[in-house]
């Protein structure tokens, strides 16, 4: 797999991939840790951007330029996911008041579940 070209471009792509990887890791951290659900959606959106970065670099490295179509499609679909989740958060906010969206205390929900025998 060692297709990286020689010279300056070679070095720069390696560095770029390394930093993209770190960014990817940080985004995954935020996605998993994110206190509120909105954080996680932001992380997902960031994930798409980093994906496009990867694709771009790989297009340059392998000079296989058809990859950027994958990038464009990813940008589009990433936007769709963000819109879908944003609307989900918005809809949830309008339902009868229950606490924060994330998994803080759900006491009454757990009791209800246990009353029903908690089997299903």
């Amino acid at each position: 797999m060692d297709v990286l070209g020689s010279s300056f471009l070679d070095i720069s792509t390696r560095i770029a991939l390394a930093s993209l990887l770190v960014a990817f890791a940080l985004t995954v951290y935020r996605l998993v840790r994110g206190p509120s659900f909105a954080d996680r959606v932001v992380a997902l959106d960031m994930l798409m951007l980093i994906g496009i970065g990867f694709i771009g670099v790989m297009a340059v490295v392998t000079s296989e330029y058809n990859y950027i179509d994958v990038g464009i499609a990813l940008a589009l679909v990433g936007f769709l996911a963000t819109v879908a989740f944003a609307r989900y958060i918005y809809r949830r906010a309008h339902l009868p008041k229950d606490d924060q969206l994330d998994e803080v205390a759900h006491a009454e929900e757990r009791e209800q579940y246990r009353e029903q025998g908690g089997r299903s």
Partner: peptide, 23 residues
């Protein structure tokens, strides 16, 4: 001749209309 084709095109088309439906 190039990466693409009916299935992938269809998926992109579907996501376009999905966006339109949601918005």
């Amino acid at each position: 001749n190039v990466p693409g084709g009916g299935f992938i095109g269809g998926l992109i088309g579907a996501s376009a209309f999905a966006t339109y439906t949601i918005n």
